[in-house]
Design a protein around this nucleic acid. Structure first.
Lengths: 164, 164
DNA sequence: CGCAATCATAAGCATGTGCCTACTATAAGT
DNA sequence: ACTTATAGTAGGCACATGCTTATGATTGCG
């Protein structure tokens, strides 16, 4: 048995996707944290800012679902963001139970600043890839990350994503 | 400011690496779980099997460090694997404090079976990528995941990876 | 030999988080 | 009107995990 192979490989040709992706992803997140803290943001706060960038409206439940967070857990995050004036939480005139969420100008500013810092770090990392691979890598990553979760997990009833 | 852009994008051109990678990675791990459970393996157990595939020897501390786990947390995992006869834990004749860890034949068998199941699922996913992108993606992923953690996190004193 | 360091192990604390229940305000169906 | 359902909020349980301390066995240094 030829034991002279690259790490993580076995008989087949490649390491598990997840085995490569999970530690890498954790490292990327760890690298983000100091940048976010410099802007006074928690990871969840940043995720919220990004999510609200895409679609200014929504309700808290919808937001929670969109970012894969627990509905009851983001309340404190939203409280903090609202206090700092980064988001707005207005009662929906059509349905006064729900809160319309949107970024303020200051929220956009903080998001841009944080994201710029983060991407500067990430670019440093991407620079290690040959240019051809880099583009394909980003393209592939966007393709895969755009897939609905069920496509990846397999339609089994895992993580019921309860709406309650 | 042109607000008519693809989702997740802001002023710059691409979404954050981590923002794409983290959910994708979590989904991949979630997809693995049922397969692993079918083979009676926990995630940590599988990680241990993979790590021991690469380098049969080691000590428990070294193993823990290699897979980014807590030294005290993998004890139970090793106990379980040993009980099932998937790994061997022999006292090192040279240093009787440490345990030499290695896969048994049965351990290799279970690892191969589990890995085959996992990669079959992952291949289904990779099939969604155009062939050119797929190869570059895997190449890039292997490159990035082979980097030492400090290269990614930035040499700051984060996650001291204590050896105690 | 005597002392500091190291390994495996056990036990515990603090935190983050998934999940559940309960409660109020509001909405919608009958 | 009455009932059911839903949004936001609060509180709490359970579990995994990072980190710490303590202990016994063993090693290695002086």
């Amino acid at each position: 048995m030829a034991e002279s192979r690259a790490p993580e490989e076995t008989a087949a040709g490649r390491p598990d996707l997840a085995a490569m992706m999970a530690p890498l992803s954790r490292a990327l997140v760890a690298a983000e944290l100091p940048v976010l803290r410099a802007h006074g943001l928690s990871m969840w706060a940043y995720v919220v800012l990004l999510a609200l960038s895409r679609q200014p409206v929504r309700s808290q439940s919808a937001l929670a679902q969109a970012i894969g967070a627990d509905k009851t857990r983001i309340i404190g995050v939203l409280d903090g963001l609202q206090e700092r004036g980064l988001i707005e939480r207005r009662a929906d005139p059509a349905d006064r139970r729900t809160h319309l969420l949107s970024l303020t100008a200051e929220g956009r500013r903080v998001r841009d600043a944080a994201q710029a810092g983060i991407q500067r770090q990430e670019d440093r990392l991407l620079a290690r890839l040959p240019a051809e691979d880099r583009d394909a890598f980003l393209r592939a990553l966007q393709t895969l990350s755009a897939l609905p979760r069920e496509e990846i997990v397999g339609n089994g009833a895992r993580r019921p994503r309860r709406s309650r």
